[in-house]
Every structure is written in C-alpha cells, then in structure tokens.
Design a protein around this nucleic acid. Structure first.
Lengths: 145, 145
DNA sequence: ACGAATGATACTAATACGGTATCATTAAGT
DNA sequence: ACTTAATGATACCGTATTAGTATCATTCGT
C-alpha cells in the first residue's frame, strides 16, 4: 500500500530542483543528469505538469521549464490528484445507493475522518516547504535571457 | 488511491456478519445471501482468514465459520496486512542507500509521521468496534450443536 | 452411501503502474 | 533559410496487483 507513487515522487523532485535553480528555465537533459530519472519518463511527467498549469514550458533551443506558480501554491495533494487520481482512502462499494450494512457505514465514518486528517496534513506540504531557500521568480510573462 | 481494497472490505463485512450472528457457525451460502459477495471470491477470502487463524472452520454438512479470536483482537490493520501487505505509505525510492536529495528526505520524515498517525487510528478499528452488540463466544474448543 | 459443506490450487480478466518510442512543432543560433 | 536542440502529443509495451472464476479433493452429518 503506497500513499505516493513514483510519478508523484519524481514530480516532487523535479519541481524542487527547478525551484532551487536560480535560472529562468531548466531543461530536461539537465534534470536527467541531476535527478537520475529515466529521460522519457521525466519528459512525460513534465508535460503533464505543464498541461496542468503547474509548469510553464519554453520550446526550442535553450528551452525548458519553470514554475508557473509560487512554490507555496504547489501542494503535494495537487500532485497526488494529478498522478494518482482523487484522494479517496475510502470508496464505498455501494456508491450512491443506501449502504445496507451498519458496520460498514460505521467504518466509512471512521475512514472518512482519517482521510480528512491525512489530507489536511498532506496539503500543508508544498514545494516551498520542501526547499530550503526561496527563489525570486520573474514577473508574469516576462523572461529575461 | 485507496487505503482499503475490496478484499479487505469484504473480509470486514463477513467478519462483522459472523460476529453478529448468535450461532455456532455461519456458512458460505448464508453469507452470500446476506452480503451479496460473489461466492467463489468469498470462499477464497474466508479460507485465507482461516489459514491466518482469524476464523475457525468446520467442514462437512452443517459446517461453516466462526471467529477464532475475540472481536476486539481482530484489527483492521491485521486485515490490511493480510490482503494488502505491509502498511507503508512511504517507501523511499532509494532503499538502504543514502538519500541524495534533501527535499525528498524532508518529505520522507513528514510522510512517516502521517503514516504513524494513520496506523494508530486504523489499529483502533476492530470487529468489536464495528458491531453494535457483543457476542458470547463458546468456550475454547467446545462447540455445542 | 450421499449430499453439503470447506480445503487447496490453478487459472483468467481488468486495471494501474512504470517505462519506452516516435513523430510533430517550435525557436535559437548560424 | 538551415540546422539543431529543445518541448508537444500520442501510442505502445511489460509487469504487478486486484478482482474474480473454476475444479477437484476432503471432511462430516444424515
């Protein structure tokens, strides 16, 4: 049973790495060298983050990725949602229908409470809280090169 | 992302059902009728519980299953271990080796803390806490029929 | 002896996870 | 304009886990 899959883990590492660089953009080759993540896998993952609006990408020679949001705004729960779907520790078998079992529904309440707790704690984790120093991001849309 | 799989869920229901019956043993046909779990699936699951010492089984005509332990002693964490393996929300990618990433290790500490908390709360859940009333179990090895 | 139950075990189908491969598109540098 | 180095999009593959089925052997009450 895993709470965090490799996808999410790699994404976290990549995002932290990007956040820590004092650059305008970080390329895949650089991240492959630094993080030892399989190249095609990392690429797919970064593209997903880009499509989700977490990274901003720059195509062409000298291109790469940069954070599209403040590090504080990139939360672990969001990454889990992207790569692992909704956080539902529970998922009652009898969806929508009235649950016919008293014990099961009591269980559901318990698990729900635990889930809420886990989510609260997970959502406190973000890229800023995982990196030591803050990075000054360039202004919206501007990119000095 | 699921914390509890269907196996574990079904096992919980079956165990609660058995606990709630005031009988010496409960048969598979009865449970199939009551719980709507696919028969072969339920059978396999009960056999596993039997092999793990959680249920006691009686073969032959009129046979069935009964709890082998007090309901308080049958914990959710135990069922999760049986059907889903060790509870490890974390599982660092770099096992044994020194983790090369500062941010990742900070994450690991956080997740570890959350995991400990989840386990503590899950282990408080057991068959007794999920069923309304207590069942008076027959004495060790004795079975009036 | 028969029937109704569990024991043991092998098999199948669906899904998620981890990873690869390929071609298209874009933009910088010459 | 051409080349090159980067990302975009998309399809594919292998393995593990989960969910479920099928079959035959064994046991025991009647």
């Amino acid at each position: 049973m895993k709470l965090i899959t490799r996808n999410t883990d790699y994404a976290l590492r990549a995002l932290c790495y990007i956040a820590e660089q004092e650059k305008d953009s970080v390329s895949v080759p650089e991240m492959v060298a630094a993080l030892h993540i399989p190249r095609p896998f990392l690429r797919k993952l970064l593209q997903t983050l880009s499509a989700e609006g977490i990274l901003q990408s720059f195509k062409g020679q000298g291109g790469g990725f940069t954070l599209a949001k403040d590090p504080e705004q990139i939360r672990l729960t969001e990454l889990i949602r992207i790569f692992q779907g909704t956080v539902e520790l529970n998922e009652c078998i009898f969806k929508r229908k009235v649950c016919p079992n008293r014990a099961t529904c009591r269980l559901k309440r318990e698990i729900d409470a635990i889930e809420k707790d886990v989510l609260r704690r997970l959502s406190a984790i973000n890229i800023a809280s995982l990196t030591a120093h803050r990075r000054i991001r360039p202004k919206e849309g501007v990119r000095a090169r």
